[in-house]
Design a protein around this nucleic acid. Structure first.
Lengths: 127, 127
DNA sequence: TCTTGTCTCCGAACGAATTAGGAGACGAGC
DNA sequence: GCTCGTCTCCTAATTCGTTCGGAGACAAGA
Protein backbone atom coordinates (compact mmCIF):
# COMPACT_ATOMS: atom_id res chain seq x y z
CA UNK A 1 0.00 0.00 0.00
CA UNK A 2 1.13 3.55 -0.40
CA UNK A 3 0.73 6.95 1.05
CA UNK A 4 -2.20 9.25 0.72
CA UNK A 5 -1.41 12.36 -1.27
CA UNK A 6 -0.99 15.59 0.58
CA UNK A 7 -3.73 18.19 0.14
CA UNK A 8 -1.40 21.12 -0.24
CA UNK A 9 1.70 22.01 -2.21
CA UNK A 10 4.84 20.00 -2.62
CA UNK A 11 8.13 21.91 -2.48
CA UNK A 12 8.57 22.31 -6.21
CA UNK A 13 4.91 23.10 -6.73
CA UNK A 14 5.23 25.85 -4.20
CA UNK A 15 8.33 27.17 -5.88
CA UNK A 16 6.43 27.47 -9.14
CA UNK A 17 3.30 28.90 -7.60
CA UNK A 18 5.46 31.62 -6.12
CA UNK A 19 6.58 32.57 -9.60
CA UNK A 20 2.99 32.63 -10.82
CA UNK A 21 1.83 34.69 -7.86
CA UNK A 22 4.62 37.17 -8.37
CA UNK A 23 4.67 37.42 -12.13
CA UNK A 24 1.09 36.91 -13.10
CA UNK A 25 0.40 35.09 -16.40
CA UNK A 26 3.59 33.45 -17.57
CA UNK A 27 4.74 31.08 -20.27
CA UNK A 28 6.84 28.02 -19.55
CA UNK A 29 9.86 29.99 -20.63
CA UNK A 30 9.06 32.82 -18.28
CA UNK A 31 8.77 30.47 -15.36
CA UNK A 32 11.90 28.62 -16.30
CA UNK A 33 13.88 31.84 -16.51
CA UNK A 34 12.68 32.91 -13.09
CA UNK A 35 13.60 29.58 -11.60
CA UNK A 36 16.92 29.42 -13.37
CA UNK A 37 18.22 32.35 -11.41
CA UNK A 38 18.28 29.94 -8.49
CA UNK A 39 18.94 26.53 -9.99
CA UNK A 40 19.14 24.73 -13.31
CA UNK A 41 15.96 23.10 -14.46
CA UNK A 42 14.93 21.74 -17.86
CA UNK A 43 12.20 23.35 -19.89
CA UNK A 44 10.15 20.19 -19.93
CA UNK A 45 10.43 19.77 -16.18
CA UNK A 46 8.89 23.16 -15.67
CA UNK A 47 6.22 22.30 -18.18
CA UNK A 48 5.40 19.04 -16.47
CA UNK A 49 5.03 20.73 -13.11
CA UNK A 50 2.88 23.46 -14.56
CA UNK A 51 0.62 20.89 -16.17
CA UNK A 52 0.36 18.99 -12.92
CA UNK A 53 -0.69 22.20 -11.21
CA UNK A 54 -3.32 22.72 -13.89
CA UNK A 55 -4.54 19.15 -13.47
CA UNK A 56 -4.83 19.72 -9.74
CA UNK A 57 -6.79 22.91 -10.28
CA UNK A 58 -4.15 25.11 -8.70
CA UNK A 59 -3.47 26.93 -11.97
CA UNK A 60 -5.13 27.56 -15.32
CA UNK A 61 -3.70 28.08 -18.76
CA UNK A 62 -4.88 29.77 -21.94
CA UNK A 63 -3.53 29.45 -25.44
CA UNK A 64 -2.01 32.70 -26.63
CA UNK A 65 -0.45 32.76 -30.06
CA UNK A 66 1.23 29.38 -30.16
CA UNK A 67 1.99 28.82 -26.51
CA UNK A 68 0.21 28.68 -23.20
CA UNK A 69 0.11 31.27 -20.50
CA UNK A 70 -0.25 29.91 -17.02
CA UNK A 71 -1.73 31.72 -14.09
CA UNK A 72 -2.47 30.83 -10.49
CA UNK A 73 -6.04 29.68 -9.85
CA UNK A 74 -5.89 30.08 -6.10
CA UNK A 75 -4.85 33.17 -4.24
CA UNK A 76 -1.61 33.20 -2.38
CA UNK A 77 -3.43 34.11 0.82
CA UNK A 78 -5.83 31.18 0.60
CA UNK A 79 -3.15 28.71 -0.35
CA UNK A 80 -0.75 29.73 2.37
CA UNK A 81 -3.56 29.85 4.90
CA UNK A 82 -4.62 26.34 4.11
CA UNK A 83 -1.07 25.03 4.12
CA UNK A 84 -0.44 26.68 7.44
CA UNK A 85 -3.60 25.18 8.83
CA UNK A 86 -2.25 21.76 7.99
CA UNK A 87 1.13 22.51 9.49
CA UNK A 88 -0.33 23.93 12.68
CA UNK A 89 -2.41 20.82 13.07
CA UNK A 90 0.34 18.34 12.32
CA UNK A 91 3.20 20.00 14.11
CA UNK A 92 1.60 21.93 16.93
CA UNK A 93 -1.53 19.99 17.69
CA UNK A 94 -3.69 22.74 16.24
CA UNK A 95 -2.28 25.51 18.35
CA UNK A 96 -1.18 28.50 16.30
CA UNK A 97 -0.10 30.01 19.58
CA UNK A 98 2.42 27.23 20.10
CA UNK A 99 3.75 27.86 16.64
CA UNK A 100 4.40 31.52 17.32
CA UNK A 101 6.07 30.67 20.60
CA UNK A 102 8.28 28.23 18.77
CA UNK A 103 9.31 30.97 16.36
CA UNK A 104 10.25 33.20 19.25
CA UNK A 105 12.13 30.49 21.09
CA UNK A 106 14.16 29.58 18.05
CA UNK A 107 14.92 33.21 17.43
CA UNK A 108 13.17 33.41 14.12
CA UNK A 109 10.90 36.08 15.49
CA UNK A 110 12.20 38.70 17.86
CA UNK A 111 10.13 40.10 20.73
CA UNK A 112 10.38 43.51 19.07
CA UNK A 113 8.90 42.29 15.85
CA UNK A 114 6.17 40.47 17.72
CA UNK A 115 5.39 43.65 19.55
CA UNK A 116 5.25 45.61 16.32
CA UNK A 117 2.93 43.04 14.78
CA UNK A 118 0.69 43.24 17.78
CA UNK A 119 0.43 47.00 17.51
CA UNK A 120 -0.29 46.77 13.84
CA UNK A 121 -3.05 44.25 14.28
CA UNK A 122 -4.55 46.15 17.19
CA UNK A 123 -4.67 49.35 15.14
CA UNK A 124 -6.15 47.59 12.20
CA UNK A 125 -8.76 46.18 14.46
CA UNK A 126 -10.01 49.49 15.78
CA UNK A 127 -11.35 50.39 12.38
CA UNK B 1 16.20 12.10 -12.10
CA UNK B 2 14.49 12.26 -8.77
CA UNK B 3 13.80 14.69 -6.04
CA UNK B 4 16.19 15.65 -3.33
CA UNK B 5 15.09 14.32 0.01
CA UNK B 6 13.70 16.77 2.46
CA UNK B 7 15.87 17.61 5.45
CA UNK B 8 13.03 17.48 7.92
CA UNK B 9 10.19 15.15 8.77
CA UNK B 10 7.71 13.54 6.48
CA UNK B 11 4.09 13.47 7.68
CA UNK B 12 4.19 9.98 9.08
CA UNK B 13 7.60 10.48 10.61
CA UNK B 14 6.28 13.50 12.39
CA UNK B 15 3.29 11.57 13.62
CA UNK B 16 5.56 8.99 15.17
CA UNK B 17 8.00 11.51 16.56
CA UNK B 18 5.09 13.15 18.32
CA UNK B 19 4.37 9.87 20.07
CA UNK B 20 8.00 9.53 21.10
CA UNK B 21 8.17 13.10 22.33
CA UNK B 22 5.03 12.67 24.35
CA UNK B 23 5.53 9.18 25.70
CA UNK B 24 9.25 8.94 26.13
CA UNK B 25 10.86 5.52 25.53
CA UNK B 26 8.36 3.28 23.81
CA UNK B 27 8.23 -0.15 22.22
CA UNK B 28 6.80 -0.74 18.76
CA UNK B 29 3.62 -1.91 20.43
CA UNK B 30 3.36 1.20 22.52
CA UNK B 31 3.69 3.41 19.47
CA UNK B 32 1.25 1.32 17.51
CA UNK B 33 -1.32 1.56 20.26
CA UNK B 34 -0.98 5.32 20.44
CA UNK B 35 -1.37 5.64 16.70
CA UNK B 36 -4.21 3.20 16.52
CA UNK B 37 -6.46 5.50 18.47
CA UNK B 38 -6.46 7.60 15.31
CA UNK B 39 -6.07 5.17 12.46
CA UNK B 40 -5.32 1.53 11.73
CA UNK B 41 -1.71 0.72 11.06
CA UNK B 42 0.14 -2.61 11.00
CA UNK B 43 2.71 -3.48 13.59
CA UNK B 44 5.40 -3.89 10.96
CA UNK B 45 4.61 -0.57 9.37
CA UNK B 46 5.24 1.16 12.66
CA UNK B 47 8.40 -0.84 13.06
CA UNK B 48 9.64 0.13 9.62
CA UNK B 49 9.06 3.80 10.26
CA UNK B 50 10.76 3.61 13.63
CA UNK B 51 13.78 1.95 12.07
CA UNK B 52 13.91 4.58 9.35
CA UNK B 53 13.91 7.24 12.03
CA UNK B 54 16.76 5.44 13.77
CA UNK B 55 18.67 5.17 10.50
CA UNK B 56 18.21 8.89 9.96
CA UNK B 57 19.47 9.63 13.43
CA UNK B 58 16.19 11.11 14.59
CA UNK B 59 15.65 8.36 17.16
CA UNK B 60 17.66 5.77 19.05
CA UNK B 61 16.76 2.37 20.38
CA UNK B 62 18.02 0.12 23.11
CA UNK B 63 17.39 -3.55 23.69
CA UNK B 64 15.39 -4.13 26.84
CA UNK B 65 14.44 -7.66 27.71
CA UNK B 66 13.62 -9.07 24.29
CA UNK B 67 12.40 -5.98 22.49
CA UNK B 68 13.60 -2.53 21.63
CA UNK B 69 12.65 0.74 23.27
CA UNK B 70 12.73 3.71 20.97
CA UNK B 71 13.28 7.28 22.02
CA UNK B 72 13.60 10.58 20.22
CA UNK B 73 17.18 11.64 19.54
CA UNK B 74 16.34 15.23 18.76
CA UNK B 75 14.36 17.56 20.94
CA UNK B 76 10.94 18.61 19.89
CA UNK B 77 11.98 22.24 20.11
CA UNK B 78 14.95 21.82 17.82
CA UNK B 79 13.08 19.72 15.32
CA UNK B 80 10.11 22.02 15.09
CA UNK B 81 12.37 25.04 14.96
CA UNK B 82 14.29 23.66 12.04
CA UNK B 83 11.16 22.58 10.21
CA UNK B 84 9.64 25.99 10.72
CA UNK B 85 12.78 27.62 9.42
CA UNK B 86 12.38 25.68 6.22
CA UNK B 87 8.72 26.55 5.94
CA UNK B 88 9.26 30.22 6.61
CA UNK B 89 11.88 30.28 3.92
CA UNK B 90 9.93 28.35 1.33
CA UNK B 91 6.50 29.82 1.91
CA UNK B 92 7.13 33.30 3.19
CA UNK B 93 10.45 34.25 1.66
CA UNK B 94 12.14 34.03 5.02
CA UNK B 95 9.84 36.42 6.81
CA UNK B 96 8.45 34.97 10.01
CA UNK B 97 6.53 38.19 10.33
CA UNK B 98 4.65 37.45 7.12
CA UNK B 99 3.80 34.03 8.50
CA UNK B 100 2.26 35.43 11.64
CA UNK B 101 0.28 37.96 9.61
CA UNK B 102 -0.99 35.13 7.46
CA UNK B 103 -2.18 33.31 10.58
CA UNK B 104 -4.07 36.36 11.70
CA UNK B 105 -5.58 37.03 8.29
CA UNK B 106 -6.82 33.48 7.96
CA UNK B 107 -8.25 33.62 11.45
CA UNK B 108 -6.04 30.94 12.87
CA UNK B 109 -4.69 33.39 15.37
CA UNK B 110 -6.91 36.00 16.95
CA UNK B 111 -5.72 39.52 17.80
CA UNK B 112 -6.46 38.74 21.44
CA UNK B 113 -4.20 35.73 21.46
CA UNK B 114 -1.49 37.64 19.67
CA UNK B 115 -1.75 40.32 22.28
CA UNK B 116 -1.51 37.80 25.06
CA UNK B 117 1.54 36.22 23.49
CA UNK B 118 3.14 39.59 23.18
CA UNK B 119 2.60 40.34 26.85
CA UNK B 120 3.96 36.98 27.80
CA UNK B 121 7.10 37.38 25.76
CA UNK B 122 7.63 40.92 26.95
CA UNK B 123 7.38 39.83 30.58
CA UNK B 124 9.70 36.94 30.02
CA UNK B 125 12.14 39.30 28.46
CA UNK B 126 12.37 41.65 31.41
CA UNK B 127 14.05 38.99 33.48
C1' DT C 1 12.18 23.59 -49.78
C1' DC C 2 15.17 22.68 -45.99
C1' DT C 3 16.76 23.97 -41.58
C1' DT C 4 16.16 25.81 -37.10
C1' DG C 5 13.85 27.16 -33.11
C1' DT C 6 9.83 26.76 -30.06
C1' DC C 7 6.12 24.46 -28.23
C1' DT C 8 3.18 20.69 -26.76
C1' DC C 9 2.20 15.98 -25.50
C1' DC C 10 3.54 11.44 -23.78
C1' DG C 11 5.68 8.68 -20.95
C1' DA C 12 10.19 6.70 -19.06
C1' DA C 13 13.06 6.65 -15.12
C1' DC C 14 14.22 6.75 -10.42
C1' DG C 15 14.20 7.94 -5.62
C1' DA C 16 11.50 8.66 -1.57
C1' DA C 17 7.50 7.62 1.36
C1' DT C 18 4.46 4.36 3.13
C1' DT C 19 2.39 0.04 4.04
C1' DA C 20 2.73 -4.55 4.99
C1' DG C 21 3.78 -9.83 4.54
C1' DG C 22 6.82 -13.75 5.50
C1' DA C 23 10.66 -16.07 7.73
C1' DG C 24 13.19 -17.01 11.73
C1' DA C 25 14.38 -16.60 16.72
C1' DC C 26 13.11 -17.42 21.26
C1' DG C 27 10.80 -17.73 25.78
C1' DA C 28 6.43 -19.33 28.21
C1' DG C 29 3.10 -22.65 29.05
C1' DC C 30 1.02 -27.28 28.25
C1' DG D 1 9.27 -31.39 23.09
C1' DC D 2 5.62 -28.75 20.67
C1' DT D 3 2.71 -24.83 20.02
C1' DC D 4 1.76 -19.94 20.54
C1' DG D 5 2.63 -15.34 20.81
C1' DT D 6 5.81 -11.63 20.28
C1' DC D 7 9.73 -9.53 18.05
C1' DT D 8 13.16 -8.51 14.63
C1' DC D 9 14.97 -8.41 9.99
C1' DC D 10 14.43 -8.33 5.12
C1' DT D 11 12.03 -7.35 1.09
C1' DA D 12 7.99 -6.52 -1.97
C1' DA D 13 4.57 -3.49 -3.67
C1' DT D 14 2.52 0.82 -4.72
C1' DT D 15 2.00 5.70 -5.22
C1' DC D 16 3.85 10.21 -5.45
C1' DG D 17 7.20 13.74 -6.63
C1' DT D 18 10.46 15.25 -9.81
C1' DT D 19 13.27 15.44 -13.71
C1' DC D 20 13.77 14.92 -18.60
C1' DG D 21 14.14 12.99 -23.39
C1' DG D 22 11.95 12.13 -27.80
C1' DA D 23 8.47 12.80 -31.31
C1' DG D 24 5.57 15.74 -33.81
C1' DA D 25 3.62 20.31 -35.19
C1' DC D 26 4.33 24.64 -37.09
C1' DA D 27 6.20 29.26 -38.26
C1' DA D 28 10.05 32.07 -39.87
C1' DG D 29 14.23 32.61 -42.32
C1' DA D 30 18.04 31.09 -45.60
Amino acid sequence: MARRRSPDFTPVELEIMNVLWESGPASVQDVQRRLESRRAVAYTSVQTMLNILVRKGKATRTLVDRSYRYRAAVSREKALGSSMRDIVKRMFGGSAEALVMSLVETKQLTPETLNRLNDMVAKERKR
